[in-house]
């Protein structure tokens, strides 16, 4: 009974309500906020985080975490641009190579977690330093240019609209992710794994295989994110997206996924990402200082979880 009520009036509600409030407040405080061109342009900054958040939702629902995604993103970028500029790889091949390399790096995480039975928090804490370190060995502190023909994807729009290509891509991927998570056997297995790993194993679910697949998925997402980021910034650097993993995890948890696993929705994650984006954009255009923005996002995270905890307990009793 408790779980049914909790899932129906789940924490997603908190994110939705906050999103509406934040949007209204920003528009009220600062009229310059309500400018579609600006909002969609500003949203290009959140697309990479959005794609990482989709895969992170799966990982967290399975009761795990991947701190190394942003390091994979940086390493994939470093490897691809090195291959193009030093070894003459055709630029178009990057579109294929990036997700494959990302997937391979993610699989390494997955194998360490499933075969060595190591906690994912610790494994990805180590590979977070390792992967970014290898990117630094490849590039040093210098940057390598993204091939010209692949630069500027965030400037390409659907004709007659402000919808840019990364936004369309994120939307499509989000719909696919939601389908896989909520409608397929694999999605149910992932949830089962996070609810009770032991029980899942006894029920004959191939938990080891699923773990490897999950972290591979996370790596593939980082590969795609890398393409988007490099296309947007025009250069690859070893320190790209450093610290972004915290924003990604914040979005997933804010979106109502349980960090202990077992529950969460793609819709919640995307809503929360929108919330973070709207709050930061609203504060940015109102001239709020960076450090206050950091504090507000932290507060938001705690308040939303506290709130859903309290309502869940009240309803449960």
């Amino acid at each position: 009974m408790i779980t049914r009520i909790r899932s129906r009036f789940g924490p997603e509600i908190v994110a939705i309500v906050l999103l509406i409030l934040a949007f209204g407040f920003s528009a009220f405080r600062e009229p310059r906020f309500l400018d579609a061109e600006y909002l969609f342009d500003r949203s290009t900054l959140y697309m990479e985080a959005g794609i990482l958040a989709l895969s992170m939702t799966f990982v967290i629902i399975a009761g795990h975490i991947d701190l190394s995604v942003t390091s994979i993103l940086a390493l994939v970028g470093a490897m691809c641009t090195t291959l193009v500029s030093k070894y003459g790889m055709p630029p178009a091949a990057m579109i294929l190579v990036a997700p494959v390399v990302g997937g391979a790096l993610g699989a390494l995480n997955g194998l360490l977690v499933s075969k060595e039975k190591l906690p994912s928090l610790v494994v990805t804490l180590a590979t977070m330093a390792l992967f970014r370190g290898v990117a630094q060995i490849l590039l040093g502190d210098h940057s390598l240019p993204m091939p010209k023909e692949l630069v500027g994807i965030h400037k390409m729009q659907l004709p007659g609209t402000y919808f840019h290509v990364p936004l369309v891509l994120l939307t499509v991927l989000a719909v696919i992710a939601a389908f896989v998570l909520h409608r397929t056997v694999w999605g149910r297995w992932v949830t089962a794994l996070g609810t009770n790993a032991e029980a899942a194993r006894h029920a004959g679910i191939p938990t080891g295989k699923i773990l490897v697949q999950l972290f591979t998925l996370s790596g593939i997402a980082a590969g795609i994110g890398s393409l988007l980021m490099l296309s947007r910034l025009g250069v690859a650097r070893f320190d790209h997206a450093r610290g972004l993993e915290l924003d990604v995890i914040t979005a997933v948890v804010l979106g109502g996924a349980s960090i202990f696993g077992g529950r969460g929705t793609i819709f919640g994650t995307i809503t929360a990402l929108g919330l973070v984006g709207v709050v930061q954009t609203g504060m940015g255009v109102a001239g709020v200082k960076a450090e206050v923005q950091v504090a507000v996002i932290g507060l938001l995270l705690i308040v939303s979880v506290l709130f859903s905890n309290i309502t869940a307990r009240k309803r449960g009793r």
Binding site: I65, L246, I249, T250, V253, I259, E291, V292, Q293, V294, A295, V296, I297, G298, L299, L300, L301, I302, V305
Partner: peptide, 13 residues
């Protein structure tokens, strides 16, 4: 992790 991720930002701010 959620509580301290939140205060990580708040205390820094």
């Amino acid at each position: 992790i959620v509580a301290t991720l939140g205060t990580l930002g708040i205390y820094r701010g």
